[in-house]
């Protein structure tokens, strides 16, 4: 069991986490955050392995990982 929490307001929508995730379970939200970016969001959270590749790749330290 693992999960990630994305701080939508810190996210700048760069999509680096999306390419880093080996499970391809991160996508970009259609919503805008306060800064005007489309924040990242996780889909199919049950597939998350907690590998934290997304988090270590995020330049804005917007992702926390729980296991």
């Amino acid at each position: 069991m693992a999960k990630i929490v994305i701080d939508e307001e810190r996210c700048k929508g760069c999509e680096l986490c999306l390419t880093a995730c080996p499970k391809h379970i991160i996508t970009m939200s259609d919503n805008f955050n306060k800064k005007g970016y489309h924040p990242a969001k996780q889909i199919n959270p049950e597939e998350c392995s907690g590998c934290a590749f997304c988090a270590i790749t995020c330049p804005d330290v917007a992702i926390e990982v729980f296991k």
Binding site: C14, I56, D60
Partner: peptide, 13 residues
Amino acid sequence: VPFTYCPGCHHGI
């Protein structure tokens, strides 16, 4: 403090 770097800039990492 949120970083002032552009989206995707590696400075943050």
